[in-house]
Amino acid sequence: MASPFRQRSVLPGFGLSLGFTLAYLGLIVLIPLSAAFLKIAGMSWHDFVAAVASPRVVASYRLSFGVALLAALVNAFFGFIVAWVLVRYSFPGRRIVDALVDLPFALPTAVAGIALSAIYAKNGWVGQWLDPLWARGVGKLATVVPWIDWKDWLGGTLAFDRPGIFIALTFIGLPFVVRTLQPVLAELEPELEEAAATLGANRWQTMTRVILPELFPALITGFALAFARAIGEYGSVVFIAGNQPAHSEITPLIIITKLEQYDYRGATAVAVVMLVASFLLLLAINLLQKWSRRFSAV
């Protein structure tokens, strides 16, 4: 029985390129990550749990993953609209708008954080109008539904509280969704829609039955990328979050705080928990994407 390695591929250079791939991935991804696992190998189970499961750290996981998920969902929706507009319509200045989408990629995250907090602070351009509105909205919610602590969830102000984290994570996640959707949208043949129309589908049906299933895998990929990026984001968030312990403190900040106290192991332990959780989430999203692809092919 021939092993798969014995079989000659039609393409030459398999051995060379696979070797290069493994060496490259090992050098760039695997070795740094395994260093993290090695670092915590010396920790006792008790120390590990104490480092990663203290109430403050657990609160930060909830915040980091929760807000990242929310921001990625919002980006999936609005990013879809942006991609749609950029691909389907031609209008003056489209190239410029298209280039603007990439800005969050290019901007140093600290600059983004400082700029966002300057704009959304109470005395900022946007903040001076929006901040009182936000505070009033949260106050109103609290009178209508008093049994939920809205101020704790939604924050009293835009910048320097939980909404600030959401703003920053939405900002940095947008290009991921737009840039993964654009090529797929461009490939989508208009004939599909024409065919749907001639077969009697109305616009809503064309959208939900024909276009969306085709785009769904790419949308999930974009969502997953934005989500993963948002979980690990540090630079922009710390400037706008307010960083209140157990309230608006994200997990990457916990890691930095532990490092500041020379607690290298504790910091690595939290990092490993984040790593494993992110990996499992991304794996689940990838499986979902695979499943949806099969679903749409049928």
Binding site: T157, F160, D161, V238, G242, N243, Q244, P245, L253, I256
Partner: peptide, 9 residues
């Protein structure tokens, strides 16, 4: 610290 709205690093 209850009166501190922003804890910068």
């Amino acid at each position: 610290f209850k009166n501190v709205p922003v804890l910068d690093s």
